[in-house]
Simulated assay, not measured.
Amino acid sequence: MKDKFLCVMAHYDKETELRLKKIQNLLLDNGFVGKQTANIPYHITLGSFNVSQEQLVKEKVKKASKEFHGFNVKLNNIGLFGLDVLFIAPSVNYELLNLQQYFDNNYADELEWTAHTTILIDDRKTIQSALPYVADDFNSFTGKIESISLYEFWPSRFILKENLL
């Protein structure tokens, strides 16, 4: 992937944010800080784009906010990417899949899309130590996707946020 890129994200309602923050706070309270991007709300990445497409993607985010309604997702899985990323994943439903496919442009061809919300990024030893804390405390729950946003990465730059209908 390129050094700089745009990222469209689906964001949760405040109650879901608090539930995810509780999981992350459990890790922080036990000394697991991680390397995940700070100061970005919990989210599900929907698509990545070249920075040259910023205006086009902004318009697409605005258009999507007028075409898609907020919807519920069942957050019921704990997962790993390799042994360096710990995440909570929803069951992919019709609404989430349609929203993701709206923003899928194959910019990151080498990566398959997996709906997830990152909780901790660190080395394998740290992830293996952190996993039991999450697993022992985790209960599936229903959250709500209520908005989408556009960010540029590295460094992170907020561009736009729109509420869904």
Results as ranks from 00 to 15, higher is better:
106 N>T: 05
107 Y>E: 10
107 Y>R: 10
108 A>H: 03
109 D>I: 11
109 D>S: 15
109 D>G: 14
109 D>V: 12
110 E>T: 13
110 E>I: 08
110 E>A: 06
110 E>Y: 13
112 E>G: 13
113 W>G: 04
114 T>Y: 10
114 T>Q: 01
115 A>Q: 08
115 A>Y: 05
116 H>V: 06
118 T>Q: 00
118 T>D: 07
118 T>K: 08
119 I>N: 00
120 L>P: 04
120 L>T: 06
121 I>T: 12
121 I>G: 01
122 D>T: 10
127 I>V: 11
129 S>G: 07
129 S>V: 02
129 S>C: 08
130 A>N: 03
130 A>L: 05
130 A>K: 03
137 D>W: 12
138 F>M: 01
139 N>M: 02
140 S>W: 03
140 S>T: 01
141 F>G: 11
143 G>Q: 04
143 G>C: 01
144 K>M: 13
144 K>C: 10
146 E>N: 15
148 I>Q: 10
148 I>G: 11
148 I>P: 00
148 I>E: 04
150 L>N: 08
150 L>Y: 04
151 Y>A: 10
152 E>F: 02
152 E>W: 02
153 F>Q: 08
154 W>S: 15
154 W>R: 15
155 P>C: 01
155 P>L: 05
155 P>G: 12
156 S>D: 14
156 S>G: 10
157 R>C: 08
157 R>Q: 12
